[in-house]
Amino acid sequence: MKIIKISMLASAMALMSFSAIVPIKAIVSEPVAEFSASTIVWKTESIDVGEIPQGTPKAIVYEFKNTGKTAVVITNVQGSCGCTATDYTKEPILPGKSAKVTATYNAANKGAFSKTVTVTTSAETTPKILTLKGTVI
């Protein structure tokens, strides 16, 4: 009789330990970050202007479209050197609308050049690097 009581007590203890196990789904219910494609689609990211005359500034226009569902704001545009001035759309770009970034190279020195323009927006975590190149004659 004593053996039966001990085995019943052991069985009850074993069953209680199983009821304390939490399902794995309850433990691993952290939200998963959803991957989304870029909401900005650039017409081109690199432009070769070919040959340009010395002393004549050359404006290069980069166009993009907001393909997302929310407005996009260009927060900063920076040329790689003082020889490249920049301008860009200041107002929010609504979904489905297009905008532009303009880089103006001063063409002061003769020879081949390759410059970059870094564009930071509210839609991207990493700035977009645009390239312009050509030869000043």
Rank of each mutant, 00 (worst) to 15 (best):
55 G>H: 05
68 G>E: 08
24 I>Q: 12
18 F>Y: 06
119 V>A: 13
78 Q>N: 11
25 K>E: 15
93 I>M: 02
41 V>K: 13
36 S>D: 09
88 Y>D: 03
19 S>V: 14
87 D>P: 00
127 P>W: 07
128 K>W: 04
43 K>G: 03
29 S>G: 11
127 P>L: 13
124 E>I: 08
40 I>P: 01
96 G>D: 05
30 E>H: 09
61 V>C: 02
119 V>Y: 02
130 L>E: 05
64 F>D: 00
25 K>M: 09
47 I>V: 14
63 E>A: 09
47 I>S: 08
52 I>Y: 06
66 N>Q: 06
81 C>N: 15
51 E>H: 02
60 I>V: 15
78 Q>M: 11
89 T>L: 00
43 K>T: 12
49 V>P: 05
104 T>F: 11
74 I>C: 07
66 N>I: 05
81 C>V: 04
16 M>N: 02
62 Y>P: 01
18 F>E: 08
105 Y>E: 11
103 A>W: 02
21 I>L: 15
129 I>D: 10
68 G>Y: 03
52 I>C: 02
126 T>P: 05
22 V>R: 14
17 S>I: 10
98 S>H: 03
29 S>E: 13
22 V>K: 15
45 E>N: 13
79 G>P: 12
70 T>A: 15
69 K>H: 06
98 S>P: 01
48 D>C: 04
34 E>D: 12
108 A>G: 04
45 E>K: 15
35 F>V: 03
20 A>M: 15
